[in-house]
Design a protein around this nucleic acid. Structure first.
Lengths: 216, 216
DNA sequence: CAGAAAATGTACTGTCAAGTACATTCCTAC
DNA sequence: GTAGGAATGTACTTGACAGTACATTTTCTG
């Protein structure tokens, strides 16, 4: 696999050492971007954090924008994996509650700093970096799909009514997460995030099928 | 009224001309920040847009951060006023629907660009500019209060049940707006915003008092 | 009309960061 | 062990931008 930029190709590292270096660059960039945002993260800083000269960054990436694109895909998998095991098993009310608690707990541990690694980048770049935007749309779609799968399986299991709009609902849940995280990091409190997630799950619960509701 | 910064005071302009100039600076900064974000907005650009030298910016503001603070307060009133007349009359289901349509319509007219002027700044500065963060918390609180007032009046009117948690619900609505706007500008489509607002109102509607629900 | 205060214009400094040039070292396959 | 590609280090260029210095004009006030 190679990435191309303006005619020049940027190959994946051939040696094990090179692969490690490239990974260190992306990791360092991801961490710094998460803390300070894209604009405030300089490539010198990335190099220092990765214990690497700037020449190596330009050896593996066409420019800062390309590196950021890689950061986004890296953070996408990190975010989704960070929500395991719940996110892939959202097929019961208990697992939704567990997922909710986990998201909140993570923010609490992080002192409500940083918000969502993807949401922050999206907010910063959606209007100015079309390449990044496209990658971010894909990331959000993958995330949303995880919600959709869960709701879909709950529907199959007869836990929610048949007439739910899977896509809209999954999209609304993702929006609740994003909005909640933004208010969380602004207020430096998990309360808004809790309210937002509870509302999203509460709305989902309003589609609980009658047979199940009476049983509860 | 004067603002103070590091011992030096930055008075409000004495003359009418000065007031106009200061207002032009804030307006231009607000527009540019909305388009490009704080980091990508240079004071030279602000000066050019306001047809003003940079010396005047530093005549009225201590530094870029102070100017941004002013932009936030300016945008707060702009955002709230932009949602009139609905936002101050959210005391019926019809007005919530009207508000929803208005928010979506505005994004559509703006080609889903920019997102929320406050949310974008919050996302960018919440972790790095404590002064800005405090102003933003206040802005969000005012916004949330508008929702709270509406829900509160609906409760008084017997439209929603007595046991709703006003603050949590208002906070969740604000989160839905913010998350919806973020996804809207990332996807360049109003669909996620529509889903998010519909879910928020739908959740609110799940608190509709029984007497009203049966009547509907 | 003076004189002061407010407003404004021009020019400059210093810093930081993206991106480039090129030399050097390391590794690997023959 | 040696050639050649991969990896890496050092030094530089260039531009942008926050912030400053200071001179000049405009405007208000007595």
């Amino acid at each position: 696999m190679t990435t191309t930029h303006a005619g020049k190709t940027f190959p994946v590292p051939k040696t094990q050492k090179g692969q490690a270096t490239r990974a260190r660059i992306v990791d360092a960039a991801a961490a710094l971007v998460f803390e300070d945002g894209v604009a405030r993260t300089s490539l010198d800083d990335v190099g220092a954090a990765a214990r690497v000269g700037k020449s190596q960054i330009y050896h593996y990436f066409a420019d800062k924008s390309s590196l950021i694109g890689e950061v986004v895909t890296r953070q996408t998998t990190a975010v989704l994996e960070g929500q395991e095991p719940y996110i892939s098993r959202l097929d019961s009310w208990e697992s939704w509650a567990g997922w909710r608690d986990q998201v909140i707990q993570e923010q609490r541990e992080n002192h409500c700093a940083g918000g969502c690694p993807l949401g922050s980048i999206a907010n910063e770049l959606a209007d100015t970096d079309e390449a990044a935007r496209v990658v971010l749309v894909d990331s959000f779609d993958r995330w949303q799909l995880a919600f959709r799968d869960g709701i879909s399986r709950m529907r199959s299991a007869g836990l929610v009514r048949d007439d739910v709009d899977l896509n809209s609902l999954a999209s609304a849940v993702l929006a609740a997460v994003q909005g909640g995280l933004l208010l969380c990091k602004t207020h430096k409190s998990t309360a808004p995030l809790e309210a937002s997630l509870d509302a999203a799950i509460g709305y989902l619960r309003s589609f609980e099928s009658r047979s199940e509701r009476t049983r509860a």
